[in-house]
Design a protein around this nucleic acid. Sequence first.
RNA 1: GGAUGGGUGGCCGAGUGGUUGAAGGCGCUGGUCUUGAAAACCAGUUUACGGGAAACCGUAACGAGGGUUCGAAUCCCUCCCCAUCCGCCA
Length: 428
Amino acid sequence: MLDRKFVIENIELVEENCRHRGVTVDVRKLADLEQQRRAKQIEAEDLNRQANEKSKLIGKAAEGAEREALKEGARQLREQKEQAAAEVDALAAEADAILRVIPNLSHPAAPIGVDDKANLELRKGKHQPPVFDFPVLDHVQLGERLDLFDFEAGGKVAGHGFYYLKNEAAQLELALQQYVLNLLVGEGFTPTITPDLARNEILQGIGFIPRGPETQIYSVADTDLSLIATAEITLGGWYAKETFDSDQLPLKLCGVSHCYRTEAGAHGAATRGLYRVHQFTKVEMFAFTLPDESEEMLEYFCGLECRIFDELGIPYRVVDTATGDLGGPAYRKYDLEAWMPGRGDGGEYGEVTSTSNCTEYQARRLAIRYRIKGEKGTHFVHTLNGTAVAISRALIAILENNQRADGSVAVPEVLQPLLGKDVIEPRK
RNA sequence: GGAUGGGUGGCCGAGUGGUUGAAGGCGCUGGUCUUGAAAACCAGUUUACGGGAAACCGUAACGAGGGUUCGAAUCCCUCCCCAUCCGCCA
């Protein structure tokens, strides 16, 4: 969330930003509530101070009528204070509810627009979309021929949107994880495996809405836990309520986790197969940085995502996400869209990774700060996240781009040693 | 899951319900001394929120949340976490 004071001092700027983001918020009401809250808080604190003073006198006073009178006075002051404090809390809660739905500010270069149609293509990857001289299959058809998935059994056992990976698909999942993890370790990331569940307060801090009609999140009944939709949640939550020394930053982590999404209301041909599923595995990058490092870190994350898909031999394009499509926490976001030959009519680009600079938005909600040695006070860190690889969508891109006329699929060179073969062939 | 013992400032560690935001020590920062360093000595050393141009002032915080009381680190309740032992288990 944004800084209260900043919002109140920059009402018009925040209102304009909300318009660009497609979010309707009554910023002026927030300012009004804040003003009332401050006045009430001063009143409550003053009453409390008076009560404290009186209580101290009681300690020194002798037993008797005088002491009883002091007690009564202090009691009354505290009652008044409690009443004022309750009003402060109510005002703060109301103001906070508004503040929490205000999205982050937007990078001045981010394209302005209400949805993904306004996304700006920045560049393309090293590889061109392949040209096939045979009928192109999509990953579902390829998977049938190669016996790589079982969607029916997934549906039977866990419901629509779940699936089994079989044979080379299962091995590819592990190979992709290992390839990416090795690459990131080489780049100085700390590799981690995170919990697949997190407390709702952490989800909210990262910017997810754990419950409610529009939620994308599975929650666990009778607990305050939810299944995570991305390791961004657990990696960001790792340092909640903690203060870094500035020389610990930047801190680069990557985490392997399963990701669970209800995908409420998402159906259709473009979501067939592995594209939009309720569970998948992902290796996520995450960084805590000083404020003046985060823009550079975003470019670095994007560069790594490009490197990974270039090395996998997959054609893609990079888009600068439009303001209306940024989500709440992001200040700027780049998506990689991989070429998927089996998608749509003759192939389409489909999102495979995404990297965001969330500046202080998540850090303020999660209370993640840093301190500079020798300086008084603390500041909020900047947080960034990026997909290194989302297995299900990477599998689509690998299978569909590397298919061959005989129905086999070439294994990307970097995965061959990990998979122990260079081609996936139909089973006999 | 059961039993017991614990959770206090960057760390260690005191703390009879009443000038305790919190003794003492360590560490850290600055100073004195010294050719320099060490030692010694002196001083300073939490954070959040609010007010103020600033100096600074106010309020809150002793695992978390409630309760008792004029007043709680201190008493009561609930929960969380840690340690050890027992049980169970991949």
